[in-house]
Structure formats: structure tokens, C-alpha cells
Design a binder for these strands. Structure first.
Length: 276
DNA sequence: ATCACGACCTGGAGGC
DNA sequence: TGCCTCCAGGTCGTGA
């Protein structure tokens, strides 16, 4: 579900939680990704009695800082939600972490498929965490340009689509925005990265930045599960150009959009104007 | 090292 | 109605 624009939307809408003091931490006891149990003791130790001081994002990871030495690291996987509720609100199914704050609210993490991740990291040393250590450039907070992409494309033979979704290249692009960015840059998802040229790489960098920025401006893409920290859906699904639009006319040339599968993932593109 | 694939898990949609 | 199959925004482990 959540790619960079959705995670950033959660970060922005979670801001009312800044300054809240965490009084207690509850967990469901169910494991998340890779069958890893939630680190209950570490969560309680790191969070109980602490004030939330900052909300950060790196790629698709959220970092919730406290006035203590440790931070909460959250990845939403496919179906994860991080929301602020009133303490009395009914819990939605598959709630796995609840942080009760001093003002009568709760910050809840729910995740039906349990592909997400909730961990404790030492503030300042986040990048040493294996999940974050491998991440490439974040296109919202760092300068993504053609030169960077061209450099990272050297001696590789993967498809452009796989290249864009590789989190060690660009952190935050997922299956929706890979298709969208490739359409914007008029490049074929099947094209090999070693065929990138300077101008094509520049177009691709711009396509990535633009597709992410537009989606963020609309509060993210809600296809089925995504909501922000207040429970509101984003409106970007209505503005997707190719994703999930097989058979509809290409906005540039009216050719029907095609669906194919690359590395097991649905891929949408215009077979006529994305030829390079 | 790089790449493609299947596995992980639940729920919703569509076919019969 | 029920049962079946397929599909879903991510990441990781495996084997070529």
C-alpha cells in the first residue's frame, strides 16, 4: 500500500501527536514481518513516560523520536496503518500496537497482513539499522537527478521498472509510482537500465520527483487500505495516469494502456509512447 | 554480485 | 448463499 507519498502523508497528519506523553504500550502478541515477534519489552522501555518530539521519514520508513535516547521505527508494509484515536474508540481488527498518551488519545498501529515492521532504534544511529543502512537516495529530501541515476545504473542489466523499485537506488518508490514515473519520462518499464543515457536519466529523475510530489499534494493514493493518521483517504487514485488503467486511452496518444507483469508485479504503460 | 521468483498473510472481488 | 481462485501498495530468502 504505502509508498513515499503515503508515508509522508501519515507523517504530516501525525503531527498533532507531537508533545504527547506516552503512558503505556500495549501489543497484540502477534508477530509482524518475517514472523518476528514485536519487541514488547524494548518498546515499553523506550517509550513509556517519554514525550514525542519529532516525526521523520526515510524512504518508506517512519521514525518517531522521543525525548529519550531511542526512537520508534515503523514500516507500514502493504496494509499497515498508523492512526490517532480517542482512547474510547473501538479498536479496528488487526491492531497490533497501541500507545496511550496522557491527553486521552491513542496512537495505534494496525496491519491485517502483518507485512509491516515496528522496532526500536537508537536516535542518531538509525542508519546502522539493517533496514535503513541499505537505502538509497530519498527523492523528497535529497537531490535526485539524472547523474545519480546514471551512476547507479552502471553495470546493471535489470529492467527500468525493477531499478526504480530497488530501495537501495531510490528509497520510497513502489509499484504504483514506478509505473507513473516511467510514463512521465516516456521510458519503457522493460527497457534495460544499461541503455539509459544522460537525457533519459534526467527525464526519469524528473518523472520520479513529479509523480511523488503530485501524489503527496493529494494526500496519497488510496486504492483499498490507505488512510492518513486521521483516517482520511487520499484522492490521488483519481489522478493516476496509468496505474490500474489497462485499456483506457493514454493521455498523450490515446493508445490503450497495457498491463504486463514484471518481477511478479502488475505494470502499466503505454506501448506506443513509452518506447525507449 | 545481480536478477527473477516465490513466500510471507489476510481480505475483497468475481466466477460458478 | 457458499466455495473457489485470483489479486493486492512490500520485502526478504533462495537458487540460478
Amino acid at each position: 500500500m504505502p509508498e513515499l507519498p503515503e508515508v509522508e502523508t501519515v507523517r504530516l497528519t501525525l503531527k498533532p501527536a507531537l508533545g504527547a506523553i506516552i503512558q503505556s504500550v500495549w501489543t497484540s502478541g502477534q508477530p509482524l514481518r518475517l514472523n518476528r515477534p514485536l519487541p514488547v519489552a524494548a518498546l515499553r522501555r523506550a517509550l513509556t513516560g517519554r514525550t514525542i518530539t519529532a516525526l521523520r521519514r526515510i524512504g518508506k520508513y517512519l521514525i518517531i523520536d522521543t525525548d529519550g535516547p531511542r526512537s520508534l521505527l515503523v514500516h507500514l508494509g502493504m496494509t499497515g496503518r498508523l492512526r490517532v484515536h480517542k482512547a474510547g474508540d473501538p479498536r479496528e481488527p488487526h491492531t497490533h500496537v497501541v500507545m496511550t498518551t496522557g491527553d486521552g488519545r491513542e496512537i495505534r498501529y494496525s496491519d491485517p497482513r502483518r507485512f509491516g515492521q515496528v522496532e526500536v532504534v537508537r536516535r542518531g544511529a538509525e542508519r546502522e539499522h539493517p533496514s535503513l543502512a541499505v537505502l538509497g537516495l530519498d527523492p523528497l529530501t535529497e537531490k535526485l537527478d539524472g547523474k545519480y541515476l546514471l551512476d547507479r545504473a552502471r553495470r546493471r542489466s535489470a529492467s527500468l521498472k525493477a531499478f526504480l523499485m530497488d530501495q537501495s537506488v531510490v528509497a520510497g518508490v513502489g509499484n504504483i509510482y514506478a509505473s507513473e514515473a516511467l510514463w512521465r519520462s516516456k521510458l519503457s518499464p522493460n527497457s534495460r537500465v544499461d541503455r539509459l543515457t544522460g537525457p533519459r536519466a534526467t527525464a526519469l529523475a524528473r518523472g520520479v520527483r513529479d509523480s511523488l510530489r503530485h501524489a503527496l499534494a493529494r494526500g496519497g493514493t488510496s486504492l483499498r487500505d490507505f488512510v492518513d493518521a486521521h483516517g482520511a483517504e487520499g484522492s490521488n487514485a483519481d489522478y493516476l495516469i496509468v496505474y490500474d488503467r489497462a485499456g483506457e486511452p493514454c493521455r498523450r496518444c490515446r493508445t490503450p494502456i497495457q498491463r504486463s507483469v514484471i518481477q511478479g508485479r502488475a505494470t502499466y504503460f503505454c506501448p506506443s509512447c513509452q518506447i525507449l
